[in-house]
Design a binder for these strands. Structure first.
Length: 269
DNA sequence: AGTCACCTGATT
DNA sequence: AATCAGGTGACT
């Protein structure tokens, strides 16, 4: 599920629902879901604290607790973090949950069980988050910063865009969609792209993420079956063999760093 | 820079 | 039965 827009939607809804709530206790049902920490660390550090704020950083959800503790959650491929009315009634693929003093539960629900939650003192959480790259929807993400980063990387530009140490939040779908909008071939080495095209790429990244944030927020407000239907139409991702609506050539797929990349051979040179 | 491991469920 | 999946960290 989640890249930046989906994580933003999850984070916003959580913020609205649980800011100010008290965590009675935390229960880890699957021990690996707190990797690399032991489950007891999360259980002990979360219990009895009040939720002061919920923030997103890259694809991480940060739950700030009273007493200077932060719960950091990463949803990986299939995770979701959401509130249930009764902590005693949870989805089948619940990996851990926070039982609130009012009886509700915050559930890390993840069929593939790749998602994780950790507990950190505030300073340690900040240190970890400082290793992430720039927030693409913040004012610091400027065309010049993108040009500066790209100049230092020989990676294929699509792999570069997904590297969280440069820009944090882009994943397989929106990296491909941004390159399509910018008309850049995904295999182009980042350092070889001229500044004018990187400016176009910068605008494409901001646009595609803003579009996706809007639809992701709506999608997460609704029951599951409407999720896919409400996302704006993707131009290339998952559309191998379909004709490009601009040039009518067939969308192709290639493999980069072990992941599928979709692109239009006509539009992206 | 590539390959695997971590997992399960959907699709071919 | 095999392959694929919106992610990432730990190995070569």
């Amino acid at each position: 599920m989640p890249e930046l827009p989906e994580v933003e939607a999850v984070s916003r809804r959580l913020r609205e629902q649980v800011t100010g709530a008290e965590i009675r206790r935390a229960r880890v049902l699957r021990p690996r879901s707190t990797y690399p920490q032991p489950p007891s660390k999360v259980e002990h550090l979360a219990a009895g604290r009040t939720i002061e704020a919920v923030q997103r950083r890259g694809k991480h959800i940060l739950i700030y607790l009273s007493g200077g503790i932060v719960l950091g959650c990463h949803l990986r491929m299939t995770g979701n973090l959401h509130v249930v009315p009764d902590a005693g009634t949870r989805p089948a693929s619940t990996r851990l949950y926070l039982e609130l003093a009012d009886g509700r539960g915050i559930v890390l629900n993840d069929p593939r069980a790749l998602g994780v939650m950790n507990a950190f003192p505030l300073a340690q959480a900040e240190t970890l988050m400082n290793k992430l790259g720039i927030e693409p929807l913040s004012a610091e993400f400027t065309p010049d910063r993108l040009i500066e980063f790209a100049a230092r990387s020989k990676m294929p530009v699509k792999v570069f865009l997904m590297d969280q140490r440069f820009i944090s939040g882009l994943g397989n779908i929106y990296a491909a969609e941004a390159l399509y909008r910018a008309r850049i071939h995904p295999a182009t080495p980042a350092s070889q792209i001229r500044p004018a095209r990187l400016r176009r790429l910068h605008a494409a990244i901001v646009d595609v993420l803003n579009d996706a944030v809007k639809s992701a927020y709506i999608a997460y407000e609704r029951p599951g079956q409407f999720r896919e239907a409400e996302r704006f139409p993707l131009a290339v991702y998952g559309r191998e063999g379909v004709c490009c609506s601009v040039c009518h050539r067939k969308i192709r797929r290639l493999t980069q760093a072990g992941r599928s990349t979709y692109y239009c051979p006509g539009c992206q040179r």
